[in-house]
Amino acid sequence: MENLDHIREEKPKAKVTIKPAQHVFSGDTVTLRCDIYDEGVTRWRYSWYKEGSINVFSELQEHTFSLTLVNTPVMEETEIRQDYTDSVSPPVSLIISPNRTQHFTSVSVSLSCEDQSDSTGWRVSRYTDRWGLEDCSSSESGSQTGSTCTINSTVIWDTGVYWCESESGEKCHPLNITVHFDVILESPVHPVTEGDTLTLHCLYQHTTPPNLRADFYKDESLIQSQTTEMIISTVSKSHEGFYYCKHPERGESPKSWISVTVFHSESQISVLHILSSVLAVSPYLLVTVVLIFRCCRMRVASVEEQETTI
């Protein structure tokens, strides 16, 4: 009989991390790192896959590549976002209904390009792993009416990057949309302004109401357990990161990146400018004051000496 003592009871666990772990733009360099947790083995060979096929076979623990539109996936572990915007962003926003970045399968999702003046001529475009770069209405269940695209019955392959594009080639800020079954995280579509309230819900597709009593995580760390919602009353820049929820029986949601915008009013900017100016010249003011003080003391001493002589 074959000796089976060398066969491991559990397979080694691998974890892939991405640098940078936040917003990545076209032309940037991305590094993938694979850490394998296993006892007794110190040397591994790594196969890096792209769209199901081996892209690189190496003994190196890290794989670095330049991000382009052609090889840009939307990944579960991080948010890969294309810079589709011009130097000056047009006054158009992509509005999603239901108003969240994660959606269940087999539901209707509406995406509209809204302008304060006129949204005529704007269409919704997208990039997905399955179909690549295309018009939103190119999907089997998609239809475009004016500047609104409606996906009548979502599927996993609708996960991707969506943005508004005009006839002249102008593009608005893109949004990552994830389609998932069972459990999703309800989070803001657009960045949250510093000082505002952030509310997150964990939703389950097969119950009414859909709210779950679940655990909420930020960047892999548990921040709130067994609650139907998580509320951060005053958001700051430190709250920026990847969030997801997890239910012990239903499973966990995909991760969503939540951005925090720091807003400075004109008065705040003026005060900061004045303070920075004062701090910049303060060493010179201090030296000047010291010199004036010394000159005054010398003059007083000289007068006192003359009076004593007289």
Rank of each mutant, 00 (worst) to 15 (best):
F65D: 06
N176M: 13
P209G: 05
E165C: 03
V262I: 10
V271H: 08
G241T: 02
R45N: 13
D118G: 04
S66V: 14
S233P: 02
S259K: 07
S112L: 05
P191C: 10
E39T: 13
V290E: 14
V300E: 11
V88K: 15
S125P: 04
D5N: 10
S87K: 14
K11H: 12
K171G: 00
C149R: 01
Q226F: 03
K171P: 00
S265E: 11
D219M: 06
G40C: 06
L67C: 06
P90V: 13
L185K: 00
C295S: 15
Q205C: 06
P209I: 04
K255H: 07
R43G: 09
T101I: 07
T128Y: 00
H206N: 13
C34F: 14
P283C: 14
L272H: 09
T145M: 15
C113W: 02
S221I: 09
P174N: 08
L69Y: 13
E114G: 02
E77D: 08
T31L: 06
V161K: 01
S187L: 04
D215W: 03
S277R: 11
I156V: 15
F104S: 03
E249L: 03
S53L: 13
D158K: 03
R294K: 15
D86G: 12
S147W: 01
T85K: 04
E307V: 08
P12T: 12
F104P: 01
V189S: 09
E79D: 08
V235H: 01
V281I: 14
M298Q: 13
I54L: 15
S277F: 12
S108A: 12
C172L: 04
R299P: 02
Y84I: 02
T31Q: 12
E140R: 13
K11R: 12
Y204I: 02
L272M: 09
N55R: 15
T68F: 11
V235D: 02
T207N: 07
T78Y: 01
G132R: 08
I80E: 02
K237I: 08
S87V: 10
L203I: 08
S125W: 06
K13Y: 06
S276G: 15
S106N: 11
R130S: 10
Y84K: 02
H247Q: 03
L94K: 00
T148A: 03
L185R: 00
T31H: 09
F25H: 07
R250H: 14
E76D: 15
T288S: 14
V92N: 01
H103I: 06
M75N: 05
V56T: 10
H6C: 14
P248R: 09
S256C: 09
R130C: 04
T228D: 13
W48V: 01
E170W: 12
C164T: 03
V124E: 00
S282Q: 11
Q268L: 04
T154G: 10
P283M: 11
M75D: 06
D135C: 03
R130I: 04
V278D: 14
R250M: 12
P209K: 08
F25E: 09
